[in-house]
């Protein structure tokens, strides 16, 4: 890519990542949540990959780590459900829904944790799909 794109991505990329984290963390208070925030984080990572390009070694390590993150997100979400089962008695019951002040960040019991788990999972899933679909290993030209 041209230097213009690289400079702009270097300036903007961090803010996109930060915005994705904000959307994930404030999912129970404002529009957004795990699905939207995870997709935004993945879009930021894909943007920096498209702008700077990668070597084959970097791509291999990135695909391994994204698989690990995806499994971690799925297991975390399941863990939230199982905690509800073992502590509260029902699968996915909301533990301590009235903890904290309503309308502030620390509230809504286990919903923010579910949001974080889903955000990690969606971001890693989209990134790993992109890595496979767009990696340099599979170029088919006639």
């Amino acid at each position: 890519m041209t230097p213009i794109v690289k400079v702009v991505v270097r300036l903007v990329g961090g803010f996109i990542f930060l915005y994705g984290c904000y959307i994930v963390l404030y999912g129970h208070l404002s529009p957004g949540g795990g699905f939207a925030g995870g997709a935004i984080i993945a879009a930021g990572l894909i943007l920096s990959r498209l702008a700077f390009g990668t070597t084959a070694k970097q791509e291999k390590s990135a695909s391994i780590s994204s698989s690990i993150f995806e499994s971690t997100g799925g297991l975390l979400f399941l863990l939230v459900g199982l905690l509800g089962l073992f502590v509260g008695g029902y699968f996915f019951i909301n533990l301590f829904p009235s903890f904290g002040t309503q309308g502030r960040l620390v509230s809504a019991g286990s919903i923010p944790f579910s949001n974080i788990a889903i955000g990690i999972k969606v971001a890693a899933a989209i990134l790993s799909i992109f890595l496979v679909l767009a990696s340099t290993k599979y170029i088919f030209k006639e």
């Binding site: 208070l29 309503q102 919903i111």
Partner: peptide, 20 residues
């Protein structure tokens, strides 16, 4: 549920099994 955003409360509390 304690969530101001009702869509999130449906996705992650009332119908969390569906989300799983």
């Amino acid at each position: 549920t304690g969530a101001v955003n009702r869509v999130t409360s449906v996705v992650l509390d009332y119908r969390a099994l569906d989300t799983l």
